[in-house]
Design a protein around this nucleic acid. Structure first.
Lengths: 307, 307
DNA sequence: TGAAGTCCATGACTTTTACGCATACCAGGT
DNA sequence: ACCTGGTATGCGTAAAAGTCATGGACTTCA
């Protein structure tokens, strides 16, 4: 008998034992007797050809082989669960407003706002452009855009020092989150500890200098291993989905992640807040610009709601 | 009973049936009787809740659900086999491959290839970086990447003029397609006429000069109205989903479009072909690099198949 | 039209496996 | 010495897996 004849049930039991630390508590959790669990584990160890658990007086610990099996079992069982889900088939007043947006700020929010505005004010037309924060601020000042959607991180410096100061409205202020592959152990819970991020591989944006790399958790207390660099969010998120690494993500992008990506919060370490800001020049708004600003605010409230 | 209680034996049997096309021949290969295989498949279908095979007089064919299960079963069984090898301490190929990619070339293909490679050669590590075509060619020449995934359009000029010439392999050559909102009238059919593109609003990449704008159909015979400019594909595609405009898209990205986007072909006017190219320096490949190149070729074949 | 061949599904039966109950053993704490 | 919490194992039973034999459906060929 070799490992290829292991059973999924045994792998599930093993995972539960590894998580809870005793056969007895795993049995209770899975509605087995302690002896049934003991036999399952014994069968799995015979299949593996090596002990997977070190028995102690107060429970069990994983052996090196046990860690191997746990890692693989997690992947296998997540694939089985994903299969089950997949099988269940569980998807304007006239005028033009010009808005600029930074990708992580605009990718979800702006399309939703535009869609909502089309329904409520079909005569209002929106055009938009992607740009960096400095470029968008210049575009606002120059009148090339009416509104700008920007992301902002501590220490929340002013966008520029020109006069008059821009009118800023914070649409959301959320904790920075983490995009993890759905099959990753960190994806099991809604939140992970910052200490759990050690030893992970990261997908970061290319950048120069030694400021914090975008994409790496800012509270990480080790030198990160950058496995991939990417600017494009579609590619980034698909790399995450493929299990290629982790990346930080604004909570507002959570609605746009492809299948295979889980968004989790990070506990421990300083709270990393990110603001989504709507910037404009401080003069009276035209009606269409005011309506788009309303739609963006409404969309910002919706984005916090899972769809 | 649900799918999470499926057995590895049943998945192995299913995979063999899928591969051989008849229960009888799969039974012979696995040393079962034909009726044992029939019962295994029936049990799996009850677990799935839907038929996985279409019985015909000359054997069986996979249903859509069957394809789902086969894909997942392959991953699961490969993981189990890899676990057995890992537990036995069998030597495996180790090494890191560095690959560069242009977003529209890399966003779908590379994650899939990396995922497949991880299953077949878990000891091979891949790191990657996004870059423009000229930057990636320079990175290849300088030895900073081992492979580069590039997109190419007519007239298919050489990537550079240095010697020796790079070794290029075309992974796919596809017609350029159009991403349209699912609610758009043009989404009703699989293909549209180039004349129907007049008067549409477009989402283009920002660029300078008067060469064709990326994102606008190159055969369009009027001055296009650019409603949005964006580089980020996630944002672009969500703008399309929101009904904000159309954009051109490589067929290889079709697998990554979010809900609300339809990919359609364009008839009339000159055929717009796009090539997806794998570039490398013309010297012998190390084993890991060769394996990743194989995985990319295989993934390129898969991307053409609707799932 | 009938025979032959190939395929899948199923009734009846046998063999094997999984699990619960009860109990023994072990280590640590009081 | 006793108690608590843990794991391993003998025994018995029920359930699952597999084989044998057979029937039905379809296609091909004489």
């Amino acid at each position: 008998m070799d490992f290829t004849n292991a059973s999924l049930t045994a792998l599930r039991v093993f995972r539960e034992v590894a998580e809870r630390g005793t056969l007895t508590s795993a049995a209770a959790a899975l509605d087995y007797t302690q002896s049934a669990v003991s036999r399952q584990i014994s069968t799995l160890e015979r299949a593996a050809g090596v002990p997977l658990l070190e028995r102690r007086h107060d429970g069990v610990r994983l052996t090196a082989a046990g860690h191997i099996v746990l890692r693989r079992a997690t992947t296998v069982l997540d694939q089985i669960d994903a299969t089950a889900r997949e099988l269940a088939g569980l998807p304007v007043e006239a005028g033009t407003v010009r808005v600029g947006w930074f990708p992580s700020a605009g990718a979800v929010l702006l399309p939703r706002a535009i869609a909502a505005l089309r329904r409520s004010h079909p005569a209002i037309t929106v055009t938009s452009r992607e740009g960096s924060t400095p470029a968008l601020v210049r575009a606002l000042r120059a009148g090339r855009v009416d509104l700008a959607l920007l992301a902002s991180a501590p220490p929340f410096r002013p966008l520029d020092t020109e006069s008059p100061p821009l009118e800023l409205r914070t649409l959301t202020e959320r904790s920075l989150c983490l995009a993890v592959p759905a099959t990753h152990p960190l994806a099991r819970h809604d939140a992970v500890e910052v200490a759990d991020l050690r030893g992970q591989r990261w997908i970061a944006s290319p950048s120069s200098g030694d400021e914090n790399l975008m994409g790496v958790w800012p509270g990480l207390d080790e030198r990160p291993e950058i496995a991939h660099t990417a600017r494009d969010w579609l590619a980034k998120l698909h790399l995450v989905a493929a299990g290629c690494g982790l990346t930080t993500v604004s909570a507002s992008l959570a609605a746009a992640v492809p299948p295979g990506v889980r968004i989790v919060a990070v506990r421990g370490g300083p709270q990393e807040q990110r603001r989504l800001i709507l910037a404009r020049l401080p003069h009276p708004l035209t009606e269409p610009v005011a309506r788009l600003a309303d739609a963006l605010r409404a969309a910002a409230l919706d984005v916090g709601t899972p769809v």
